[in-house]
């Protein structure tokens, strides 16, 4: 799966958890750009992404991402 395919899937997860059909993510999107992306929703997104890709993030990763792109890097390193 390439980065743009991962981005598309991640975008769908965000739409489902944040219940916002209009949400469009880019690799540069950060929590500051998305109104409902708070720490509570973040953890739900993390768990939903883990399920979607059948992977597990480390606790370090969960705390370190600043942008969607960094999350995609973590995913792509685990789904090679």
């Amino acid at each position: 799966m390439n980065r743009s395919e991962i981005l598309k899937t991640v975008n769908e997860v965000f739409i489902d958890i944040l219940d916002d059909e209009s949400l469009v993510l880019t690799e540069e999107t950060s929590a500051n750009d998305v109104e409902d992306w708070d720490s509570l929703n973040h953890i739900q997104i993390v768990v939903a992404v883990e399920k979607q890709f059948k992977i597990r993030f480390t606790s370090q990763e969960i705390l370190s991402w600043k942008t969607v792109g960094e999350m995609i890097s973590s995913i792509s390193s685990k789904t090679l």
């Binding site: 953890i43 739900q44 768990v47 993030f57 480390t58 606790s59 969960i62």
Partner: peptide, 16 residues
């Protein structure tokens, strides 16, 4: 129990 969630958020119950 989801250890990484516990460490990053202090939640002891998993989302599931």
């Amino acid at each position: 129990f989801h250890p990484s969630v516990y460490i990053s958020t202090d939640m002891v119950l998993s989302i599931d």
